[in-house]
């Protein structure tokens, strides 16, 4: 469903969320309203302003290259909805 700002069907698909037609209606309307509100940012002059990705500036955070124990296969798969032969099973992947 295409609203004034976005095509909800399209974006929901990009986000891998399947919406019911009713959800598309409601969400579409609400998101349009929210995006209308966000228009106010466009009135602000941000030329020459650096973007902030992290609120506290740090650089060069690294760890030494040391191997540590992993989970056992059992633990790794304990929460899996469909484990088999040590693998996480999914419907057949077609490229």
């Amino acid at each position: 469903m295409a609203g004034a700002h976005m095509d909800v069907t399209d974006v929901a698909h990009l986000a891998r969320i399947r919406l019911t037609p009713a959800e598309e209606q409601t969400l579409g309307r609400q998101l349009d309203q929210i995006l209308d509100y966000m228009e106010q940012l466009k009135g602000l002059d941000v030329s020459g302003v650096e973007p902030t990705a992290h609120p506290f500036p740090l650089v060069n955070v690294m760890r030494p290259d040391e191997a540590r124990p992993s989970l056992s296969q059992d633990e790794a798969l304990r929460n899996a909805p469909a484990p088999a032969n040590g693998l996480f099973m999914v419907p057949k992947i077609v490229e």
Binding site: E66, A67, R68, P69, S70, L71, S72, Q73, A76, L77, N85, G86, L87, F88
Partner: peptide, 16 residues
Amino acid sequence: CGCANTFGSPPNTNVC
């Protein structure tokens, strides 16, 4: 992460 970078282990044993 600290999982070993090795080849040929049984599936899902070098994971955390």
